[in-house]
């Protein structure tokens, strides 16, 4: 058995070596694939905070991914057309600056996660799954029927947003930005899991009554986890929109919610690096199988079915054994 710590190091090394090699070998497409994997991993690290730590099976995280994406799309749209986002109650200008857009995305998706979380956490179990799925669909239909920002056609951003001191149009530099954010998110998730908050949350997942007995509100703990989780996924959405320079209602689709969950599961629920492993495997499969069969989702479906039915603990669980996992 390989120690989980060593496997995590190996995953980080893979995430650095492949893009650097691709940069030297002049293979920008590989760098783009790795950027995609890093962004998906970030979204899944976000979901894993709700799912792995809080036990909240949210099937609506595409809502936050999409909100982050549209926060970027709308800001950049107004900046490139030189129109204000809003004139009332005070003037809001569009922006093409990445750090500003990230802040907006995090704020917007955290706000939405608070509302969705407060409503969804009135219930639990299978109700929670259905309600998050339904709210996700609500954002999807809203984005389709709202004509101002492209409706069904989506919104194109012609030039990638800027980051002070970097050329974001260079694939390797944009990858490094995404990778740095992913590492920061992993560090935050790891700190969170070991913090008093994380420990209390862990307890709230396993024995809510006991947590209540010692004077903590389990639902409040879960709500905070849900908001952090949604905000992180929203940030991933903003980066994803920047990667494609395009946002569309597809970012809100329920399939995407399912896929973000698949990243977490293939890698291993509650494992710090599970989402990274899952996203890497997903993007690799998407590229390899998508190249040789138009119907690659069948293969993905079968693989997923096998992992769920027979491979408890996901890839990391299979390689490292069960010790150290959350359940």
């Amino acid at each position: 058995m390989i120690k989980e710590r060593h496997l995590n190091m190996a995953l980080i090394v893979v995430c650095v070596v492949i893009p650097v090699w691709a940069h030297l070998a002049d293979e920008p497409f590989i760098i783009t694939l790795m950027t995609r994997a890093a962004i998906f991993a970030l979204a899944a690290v976000g979901l894993n905070i709700a799912l792995g730590l809080g036990g909240l099976v949210s099937l609506g995280h595409a809502a936050f991914f999409g909100l982050g994406g549209y926060a970027m799309g709308i800001s950049a749209f107004h900046a490139q057309t030189f129109t204000p986002v809003a004139e009332w109650p005070f003037l809001i200008e569009g922006t093409k600056s990445m750090p500003a857009i990230w802040l907006i995305s995090v704020a917007v998706s955290a706000f939405a996660a608070t509302i969705v979380g407060i409503l969804s956490l009135r219930t639990s179990g299978v109700y929670f799954i259905m309600i998050t799925l339904a709210f996700g669909q609500m954002f999807f239909y809203f984005s389709i029927s709202w004509p101002t920002y492209g409706g069904e056609d989506g919104l194109s951003v012609y030039v990638r947003n800027g980051f002070p001191g970097l050329n974001t149009l260079d694939p390797i530099q944009f990858f490094m930005i995404c990778f740095a954010i992913l590492v920061a998110a992993l560090a935050l998730a790891s700190r969170l899991a070991r913090s008093p908050f994380g420990l209390a949350l862990n307890a709230a997942r396993q024995a809510p009554q006991r947590v209540e007995t010692v004077g903590l509100d389990p639902n409040r703990l879960k709500l905070v986890a849900f908001v952090i989780s949604g905000a992180m996924t929203g940030l991933a959405g903003a980066l994803f929109a920047d990667l494609n320079r395009f946002v569309s209602p597809a970012m809100f689709s329920w399939q995407l919610s399912g896929e973000i969950m698949v990243f977490v599961i293939i890698g291993g629920v509650g494992r710090l690096f599970g989402p990274v492993a899952g996203a890497l495997v997903f993007v690799t499969l998407e590229h390899l199988l998508g190249g040789f069969s138009e119907f690659w989702h069948v293969h993905l479906g079968v693989l997923l079915l096998l992992v769920v039915l027979f491979g408890r603990g996901g890839l990391i669980g299979m390689i490292c054994g069960r010790e150290g996992s959350h359940d």
């Binding site: 799912l51 099976v57 099937l59 179990g125 299978v126 799954i129 399912g258 969950m261 698949v262 599961i265 629920v269 119907f295 690659w296 989702h297 069948v298 993905l300 479906g301 079968v302 997923l304 079915l305 769920v308 039915l309």
Partner: peptide, 20 residues
């Protein structure tokens, strides 16, 4: 429920692509 969600999500992928 998490396993049920994922397994039936996998079934959707198989059914949809199979039908296509």
């Amino acid at each position: 429920h998490l396993d049920q969600v994922l397994a039936t999500f996998a079934l959707i992928l198989i059914f949809s692509e199979g039908t296509r």
